[in-house]
Computed example of a mutant assay.
Amino acid sequence: MKKILTGISFFHSLVFYAQSDHNKAVLSDITEKVKSYYIDKEAYKKVDSLFHNESKKGSFNSLSKKDFAALLTQKLRININDKHFFVKYLENYSPKKAVSEKEREEENNSHNRLENFGFENVLRLEGNIGYINFKGFASPQSSEKTLAAAMNFIANTHSLIIDLRENGGGDNEMLLLFCSYFFDKKTALYTTYLRNKDETVINSTQSEVSGQKYLHKKVYILTSKKSFSAAEGFAYFLQEHKLAEVIGEKTEGAANPVDHFIIQNQYLLLVPAGQIKSFISHKNWEHTGVTPDQEVKAGDALKVAHLKILKNILKTETKTELSIPEIKNLIDKLEQ
């Protein structure tokens, strides 16, 4: 019996040391990526100290790889105070052969197409009001036609509501393309400083787009605490340029762009590797979030925006498909 227990104990020791070596390699690689890419050049010292202390306490012992990744995400976000940090275990991941840009784009398209490139639905609400429920910024190469179709659909409305309450962000170029529909000419919105390359890039809207631009009309953007990254940027820049009113909850505050890395062929790591600055304020929404023009609970934001538009229709005597009594009746229903 003693020999069996000793054998089991020896096996457990092998597993423990193998896991320990694995964890050390992962932590070392993450620290190195932070040192080379993170926007704050000194932050890697905090990361190194964090990992050393947590390893000494045994925080990473006996965790599954999935839980290990989740704990790393939590620790990095809290200790570095940056919600863009992310670590995910890639189950059954295997390094792929080098693929062309076209093949990579098609692979991304296959996934994003299943979610209609973030466009959940596009509607015309009573009172001739456009409504776009947009949940994510896929690449503009894949999303351009769907975006154009959505904007063409709402082109004849007199006001527009863009719902970003469940939008977790995404592609920076798609952010610029969507913004382009609300600017009458090419406009420089912000700069991006890329630390690893030590260069600054100017980010501008496009003068021409595939669909119809939505100019000189009322635009309302709905936000929640889930609105993140590019979704925050969209609200921030249209609000800053006085092209839209933001209604809903203050957002989380994640402005800086990220780079993606594969760690030990098993984990995806996102590291904030740049810093953006608005051309108007020379600031961004990092840590502060986007403050709505009208702060209400996320669940009430759509109703509040709809009511605001309907009341403005009465005030300005804007012609719609509804008569004045019908508009007043609709207002009464929404207020109940």
Rank of each mutant, 00 (worst) to 15 (best):
F11K: 06
S13F: 11
Y17G: 03
Q19H: 10
S20I: 00
K24Y: 13
K35S: 07
K35R: 14
S36W: 01
Y38V: 05
Y38K: 03
K41I: 05
K45H: 07
V47G: 00
V47C: 04
S49A: 10
F51P: 00
E54Q: 15
S59I: 01
F60Y: 14
N61P: 01
L71H: 02
T73K: 04
Q74P: 01
L76N: 02
Y93V: 06
K96M: 14
K96N: 13
K97P: 03
K97S: 13
V99P: 01
S100Q: 12
E101T: 11
R104Q: 08
E107M: 03
N108G: 14
N116V: 03
F119W: 07
L125W: 03
Y131M: 00
I132C: 01
F134I: 01
G136P: 00
A149H: 12
T157H: 13
L160M: 13
D163Q: 05
G168K: 07
F178E: 00
F182C: 04
F182T: 05
Y190N: 04
Y190C: 06
V201M: 15
T205P: 04
Q206N: 15
S210W: 00
Y220E: 10
Y220C: 10
K225F: 08
F228V: 13
A230C: 15
F237N: 05
L238S: 08
E245H: 06
I247W: 03
I247M: 09
K250A: 11
E252H: 09
G253M: 06
P257Y: 02
L268E: 04
L269W: 04
L270E: 10
S281Q: 14
S281E: 11
K283V: 02
W285R: 10
H287N: 11
T288Q: 10
V290Q: 05
A298Y: 08
G299M: 13
K303Q: 15
I309Q: 06
L310H: 06
K311S: 14
T316S: 12
P325G: 08
I327R: 08
I327D: 07
N329T: 12
I331F: 11
I331M: 09
L334T: 04
Q336F: 08
